[in-house]
Design a protein around this nucleic acid. Structure first.
Lengths: 234, 234
DNA sequence: GTAATAAATGTATAATTTACATTAATCCAC
DNA sequence: GTGGATTAATGTAAATTATACATTTATTAC
């Protein structure tokens, strides 16, 4: 490599780049977060977002997917970047910048044994223990983004099984928005968007009568997007 | 520093961290972007977002502010992170991750001589030349974010002088949203939010009659935020 | 067969958004 | 100093969307 002006700037030789994932799931009517015990000093062993260093030959996003697959066994997960956390003193050990992604997973799909073997654990979103470094801030920011995003993109569907009932979906939006919704209005609004396909099956795990199962209609959703983008629930 | 598990992960010794800024301004009824000629190889001399490497002892945000002040002479500018760009091959020279911020500046405040002396240039947003590396993508993403954000936060005010007229503000929203707005409805909606202070002065640069000048009412805006957050224009 | 449980449905009112045309203030030219 | 040109300012009616609210239905367990 020829010597260039870059040498003049002296970018640090000790700047580390890591990635951390906010892994959200939804189960038993609660929004949950997957965390594990930090694997590196300092603060090794404390609760932490799931993360890793980024390898030299690896996209940042790839690194996040690698660590997610490693811990949960899941691939093809909905994932989006939250942002970079780069305060000089955020990590007392090394100068490390962390790029945080958030992932939404169908909580029943993941590999329980794998998760356990990594000492990872799901916490109710309201019962997450204190996290290491600036991870509490990452979580707070991620929740805010999730809540905002839920207003104009149908991310809720990423958190539910492929087949779900309307009451389930409503419950999910209730925990995301942290407020109760009116069942009639929720159902009305949702069905008016034409992005649900009603199945000829019921889920009876929550009531005697059973609730009809639905699938998300990706095709119609794409069309809805094209024709002006106004997915809004509640 | 003791040897720890971090050594096992072998984070790259050659991972560079840079920051690039999307610097938006508004002038002559047009949204504009400030770019300069890249100072480092590869592709030195091509049009580029304004950026720099991040120093070891410097917050990422600080680095962005440093470079912004260096080029425009401005401090205390509205700035927010867009995200990190971290594809392994994004920079053919070095493995560099760039954290992109976007800044909104009052275009008349900046130091013209300073800007010129750095070979920087304002382009109409629709006439920005091809940019180096993945900077075109950054710009596209930044514009999308600006457009979305303009819907629920009063960022428009950051781009206008302290005193501005309602027609000016409307024009700004029109270029952000890329559509014409109805003057009566715009004015009605805006005034109903109670975040404008009418001054006893007119700006006559655009009409014989002149339009009244207003200031943004930060205090009332903060209260509006607290009481449930629903700043939406057009 | 009846008691218990959650699912499903409709309507009237209020609030918000949209569409749309005229008058007002000022400057400049004559 | 009058008239013409130009942009600023204003109000109302109709349509759309959001909200509030109570009863009936399907099913299972006993």
């Amino acid at each position: 490599m020829p010597e260039t002006i870059i040498d003049f700037y002296q970018p640090s030789e000790k700047m580390y780049v890591a990635t951390d994932c906010l892994i959200f799931g939804f189960d038993e009517g609660q929004l949950k977060l997957l965390v594990f015990k930090r694997r590196v000093e300092p603060r090794k062993g404390e609760w932490s977002l799931i993360g890793s260093f980024v390898n030299l030959d690896e996209d940042v996003e790839e690194a996040a997917k690698r660590v997610l697959a490693e811990i949960t066994g899941l691939e093809n997960v909905y994932m989006e970047q939250l942002g970079a956390y780069g305060a000089a003193e955020r990590d007392p050990g090394y100068r490390t910048i962390s790029i945080v992604q958030y992932a939404l997973i169908r909580i029943n799909d993941y590999d329980k044994k794998l998760v356990e073997s990594h000492g990872a654990h799901w916490f109710d979103i309201n019962e997450v223990p204190g996290l290491v470094l600036d991870h509490d801030k990452m979580l707070a920011d991620g929740l805010e983004k999730l809540r905002r995003k839920a207003r104009y993109q149908p991310i809720g569907f990423e958190l539910l099984p492929e087949k779900f009932t309307i009451p389930q979906l409503q419950k999910l939006y209730e925990v995301i928005y942290q407020k109760e919704l009116d069942g009639r209005n929720f159902r009305k609004k949702l069905l008016s968007l034409n992005v649900l396909i009603k199945l000829d099956e019921k889920d009876k795990s929550n009531s005697r009568r059973g609730a009809f199962l639905y699938k998300f209609d990706h095709k119609n959703y794409q069309q809805l997007l094209k024709s002006g983008y106004n997915f809004e629930i509640a």
